[in-house]
Design a protein around this nucleic acid. Sequence first.
DNA 1: TCATTGCTTTGTATCGATAAAAGACAACGT
DNA 2: ACGTTGTCTTTTATCGATACAAAGCAATGA
Lengths: 295, 295
Amino acid sequence: MKPDTVYKSALNTTLQLLGNGEFAAGLPSENQLRGQIGVSRTTVRKVLRELTRRGIVVQEDGTKIPGRPVGKDDLYSGPETTSRNEHVEQQFMEWMLRGGIKPGTLINELELARQFGVATNGIREFLIRFSRFGLVEKKRNSGWLFEGFTEDFALELFEIRVMFELRSARLFAELPRESPLWGRLNALKHQHIDLLENIEVRYHDFSSLDNRFHRLVNESSPNRFIDDFSDIITLIFHYHYQWNKADEKERNTAAIMEHLAYIEALQSRNRRLIASACRKHLRSARDTLLRSLAK
Amino acid sequence: MKPDTVYKSALNTTLQLLGNGEFAAGLPSENQLRGQIGVSRTTVRKVLRELTRRGIVVQEDGTKIPGRPVGKDDLYSGPETTSRNEHVEQQFMEWMLRGGIKPGTLINELELARQFGVATNGIREFLIRFSRFGLVEKKRNSGWLFEGFTEDFALELFEIRVMFELRSARLFAELPRESPLWGRLNALKHQHIDLLENIEVRYHDFSSLDNRFHRLVNESSPNRFIDDFSDIITLIFHYHYQWNKADEKERNTAAIMEHLAYIEALQSRNRRLIASACRKHLRSARDTLLRSLAK
DNA sequence: TCATTGCTTTGTATCGATAAAAGACAACGT
DNA sequence: ACGTTGTCTTTTATCGATACAAAGCAATGA
């Protein structure tokens, strides 16, 4: 009843390590391998048994060494290695964003369960988890309401985002000179500059850089509630970037410039400058999002 | 498999309405009753069938009228009328607060399921829902970690609370004179004064007043993320009040005075005064909470 | 025509079972 | 003594089944 996705992805990981030639001199002990791939020894043993059966690993007087080379066919495919939860999340986001679901729609657990090929339980657990993003809401003694990704949602989201970011930016500027975060900020600055130089081909790398930058600012003074909120931002932007490709290069170029101004403001440690650069960037991020919703 | 708690609590509600003499002239239609008690007609019919069987309602040429008087024994008991979810929540809070569970403890779904008399599924769903409060966290491919109600938790909570409350208070002061919220604020002010006069006997009514006051301030300009956060505050204070009874009267008296100062500041519409009264009140609320944690 | 009640279909809340994975214990060799 | 592997026990992830409740449809009567 429980799928063996953990085992399958562990096997894939092991094959990759073998392919990299890491174990040419012989395989490590079960426990060491366990640590490397982050699963239990039970699973490691299962993987090793299977690899031995396939001849990819062979036993030679007491120790295990690599056997025949690894082929493409030895790997398990994507869907086989993702758990039900991840599966449901992807399918749900797809359903929500591409399905043109209108705000106010009632969500039917049974229907989604059939559509996604899981038990209703799985849908329910996902929705409970997902409800913290504020896009769906449980109706008492009844189903779920899809509240939708509306303009109001975006405005409320950004109101909070501005508050949190201004707070973190202010605290960042107060960090002592010797804080390692300054070094990391500078490294990020150079990554921005590099990206800007190759913007023609690498413009979609911005998404990840954006995420790392804003999380770094928050690290100045961690707060679990702000971190939780950042997860919402990350989710929204992750799927929004996939969905809205119009003018991506131009938008990202502008955003990089804003980030650079913001970074320099942080480095100046001038509160006024920081607040203004931060506000300016967030305002244009908000407007971009709103514009893509209006369509 | 699904318990009939909805039916049982609907039956209790109907008995209460009957007891109040509301239906002395004859019962309303199924649909009207449905609206009054907030369940489906299916459930209403089930209730009526049972009440008729017991002779509490009798059929008289076409219409239904009250029959024999309602006795104590006709009511279903508390546990029979609460859903699994509510049950689990109460038991979990009890387990957490009175059980002296240390931060860092691993939570065992199976054990809790046995202890609370539900299927593991129920525990899991509860924990997923509860995790948004930041007190428990899921470990990948393994159990749940109880993070605990620590000093850090309280400090981080209050940092956000201050930000949100200052924002809402500022917006409250900007409401137009004719906003109905001013009237409601004034009504709450008088409730505070009344409570203060009878503080000796009614001091534990403050908890609910406190909650209503802070929610009113937030209503000045609703934001779903702030509302979500308020749920955390409510939960924490709800259980904290039950748990820490020391000096309750004194603490509440002081808090009422602070509220009154805060309300008057709002009514003055003076930003400085508002910010200072708000800060002062939240600082003492935070200190009270911290002091009770230290013990 | 529309509210009322009777009946049917659909959907939700909950349980129990089971395979997979994690974790604990035992035995062994060095 | 301790790291290694072999074996057993506990816990988690997931499914399917089922009683209860909601929602839809039909018939009836004022």
